[in-house]
């Protein structure tokens, strides 16, 4: 008697994502069918990972809306290897008997390109330093999959590409973020006033998984030293609110008001734009010519609530 062997087949609907980040997982479903219509539940299929490890998986029975019917399916979770490049997983149905009928071997290869983790950067607390003085900026770096980046080095480069500052990311992520590791980088402002631009780079190394580097740029304005003090008093009108702790700006020179609504701002001589704003008051803005110490009073009125339905009478 001739023993007929059945021919099963394995396929996937979506396969693996074309790109996977190193160490990332993806779930994949394969569907197993027999040309002769056997119920293949309980059959065993094998999985070989890119690293050559083997595993097995029992075929289950699930509702598959894409097939419009139930069928024999197996679901695996695969983990991308730590090394980047093309990676292959082999799903194999080894020769086996199902319900007493021998079934031939069948294999399916799943492919994906393993890529390094993306990282990205934020740079903040950039001041307008006085010319020729020390200042510092904060730099934070985040891995898209939230790896611990503690201890990684960030470098600040000047316009000529020379490293002018360096820092190491701290041990814990910044409060309020998912995984932004940060550091303070000390820098020195140029001797002359004006705009400056710096580039910040971070190329993570010595991590279990490969990472792309990230970079960012920031600008700053170095300021000539102040010569005079302008005392600005904010006088509330039509509001009982305290005028304390309002940021008062004279161009790039800033100070906060004290409990009496008074701020003392040091500025060089010249014309400066005086501005102040807080959420409960209307923006304050005026021009001030400074040629010596001066005191000014500005009026703060409550924020005007715009009711467009009232404004527009049509």
């Amino acid at each position: 008697m001739v023993v007929t062997r059945h021919t099963p087949s394995l396929r996937t609907h979506a396969g693996l994502p074309a790109e996977m980040e190193a160490g990332a997982t993806a779930s994949v479903e394969v569907r197993l069918t027999c040309a002769d219509g056997c119920d293949l539940r309980g059959a065993v299929i094998e999985l070989t990972t890119p690293q050559g490890e083997h595993g097995t998986c029992e075929v289950g029975w699930v509702e598959d809306p894409r097939e419009g019917a139930q069928g024999a399916n197996a679901r695996f979770v695969v983990t991308a290897p730590a090394s980047t490049g093309e990676a292959e997983w082999t799903v194999r149905f080894p020769t086996q008997s199902v319900s007493g009928v021998p079934h031939e071997e069948h294999a399916l290869v799943l492919e994906s390109t393993v890529v390094p983790h993306a990282t990205s950067m934020a740079i903040w607390d950039v001041p307008s330093p006085l010319q020729g003085t020390e200042f510092a900026v904060r730099v934070g770096v985040k891995c898209a999959t939230c790896c611990v980046l503690a201890g990684q080095v960030v470098q600040v480069l000047d316009e000529a590409g020379v490293v002018v500052g360096e820092g190491r990311l701290g041990a814990a992520p910044l409060a309020g973020t998912d995984a932004l590791y940060e550091t303070l980088v000390a820098l020195r402002a140029p001797e002359r006033p004006g705009m400056g631009s710096r580039r910040v780079i971070c190329v993570p190394g010595d991590l279990a998984l490969p990472h792309h580097g990230s970079s960012g740029t920031f600008t700053f304005r170095s300021l000539p030293p102040p010569e005079h003090t302008v005392t600005v008093r904010i006088v509330p009108e039509g509001t009982e609110a305290s005028m304390a702790d309002i940021e008062v700006r004279l161009g790039d020179y800033r100070a906060h008001t004290d409990l009496n609504g008074v701020a003392r701002v040091g500025v060089p001589r010249g014309s400066h734009e005086l501005s102040a704003w807080r959420v409960d008051i209307e923006p304050i803005s005026s021009r001030l010519d400074v040629s010596g110490d001066a005191a000014v009073e500005v009026v703060a009125v409550p924020r005007r609530v715009v009711d467009e339905d009232a404004e527009r009478w049509g």
């Binding site: 934020a122 740079i123 903040w124 607390d125 950039v126 934070g140 910044l174 309020g176 973020t177 932004l180 920031f218 700006r249 734009e273 501005s275 704003w277 803005s285």
Partner: peptide
């Protein structure tokens, strides 16, 4: 008119 504030401190 006179852009006032940088967009810099996380989160964004």
């Amino acid at each position: 008119p006179t852009p006032q504030y940088k967009i810099q401190r996380p989160p964004f």
